[in-house]
């Protein structure tokens, strides 16, 4: 996803010299290429995330469009007050890109896991929150962020995520994508865990169960049409995310259901309010936390049995 991100950013930087690539000593692997092409549009602040976020706010007041990039954990947690006070309160045109969503930093443990960022940042007014699942979606989200005048947080993976979208895919603003259209249960997913969830849904199909699979890219604003439709059809609603089950996708959807009095039940699959266990590659850590395709499939089967 990093290469998709930087590729798209270079395309924007070429067209618009106000697009600035800001780093805090943790880059995309392609930053030297960016620097060669656009030497006056890239700055490395060193290991100083708060300084970078606040400086980005300052730049935005002078007409720049800074894209701040580093590990999501260091943005959402360490720099949270700077995102809130300096960027979002003033509704400034700063794009905050957190790489290593969920358990991507699987070898380094919970200090690097980004499993509460949606909960933390979703509570901040004015902030658009995008959670792409695939490289093509990353590029579309960067384009959308560029076109949207105001603060945006984009949460991206970093481990060669599988592509589920065609070459000519164009994201429809903040709309959700229905990837499978079944009637037995409605599965909402966000981020790069889509790969596991897609497999799990195929396993359900092999059992003769037809899931509706909805990929949610825009966490905020959230478009509730598919949730409303599922509730009206009496389908059980399952959410899957590489994030705490509190405050993220499950939280968004549970709020929609409860606030509108839909009377549906939401079954959350995610990190169950713990610091994630295990080390290794991302799949190993997903397994250790019940978030690989097999575990997700079994949980969804249980939902079917309970209903």
């Amino acid at each position: 996803m990093n290469s998709a991100y930087i590729g798209k950013l270079m395309e924007l930087a070429e067209k618009d010299s106000n697009v600035i690539h800001l780093l805090a000593d943790s880059g995309t692997g392609y930053d030297e290429m960016f620097r060669r092409n656009f030497p006056h549009q890239i700055y490395n602040f060193g290991i100083a995330e708060e300084n970078m976020v606040a400086a980005a706010a300052g730049m935005a007041t002078a007409g720049k469009i800074p894209f701040v990039f580093t590990a999501g954990a260091f943005l959402a947690y360490r720099s949270m007050e700077f995102i809130r006070d300096d960027v979002c309160f003033q509704n400034l045109n700063v794009k905050i890109v957190g790489m290593g969503s969920g358990l991507s930093w699987s070898s380094l443990g919970p200090t690097h896991h980004t499993t509460e960022d949606l909960a933390v940042l979703r509570a901040i007014p004015n902030l658009m929150i995008l959670s792409p699942a695939t490289p093509k979606q990353v590029m579309e989200c960067v384009q959308l962020a560029y076109e949207h005048v105001g603060p945006v947080y984009i949460r991206i993976g970093m481990n060669h995520e599988k592509e589920f979208y065609p070459e000519d895919y164009r994201m429809q603003a903040t709309a959700n994508d229905t990837l499978m259209d079944g009637g037995d249960l409605a599965v909402f997913v966000t981020g790069s865990i889509l790969e596991e969830v897609h497999k799990a849904c195929e396993m359900l199909q092999a059992d003769g169960v037809q899931p509706k699979l909805v990929n949610v890219t825009s966490i905020k604003p959230f478009q509730p049409q598919e949730v409303v439709a599922a509730a009206q059809a009496g389908m059980p609603i399952v959410t899957v995310e590489e994030h705490n089950i509190h405050g993220g996708l499950a939280g968004v959807i549970a709020e929609e259901v409860a606030f509108a009095g839909m009377g549906a039940r939401v079954y959350p699959i995610g990190i169950e309010d713990v610091f994630a266990a295990g080390y290794g590659n991302q799949l190993m850590v997903r397994k250790a936390n019940g978030l690989d395709a097999e575990h997700i499939y079994r949980r969804m089967k249980e939902v079917r049995t309970n209903e």
């Binding site: 606040a54 400086a55 300052g58 730049m59 935005a60 007041t61 002078a62 700077f82 300096d86």
Partner: peptide, 17 residues
Amino acid sequence: GHGLSMGQGIAMALQMD
């Protein structure tokens, strides 16, 4: 502890332009 960083960002933008 916010102002100097924000001011720095503005100074960078002015310098770029």
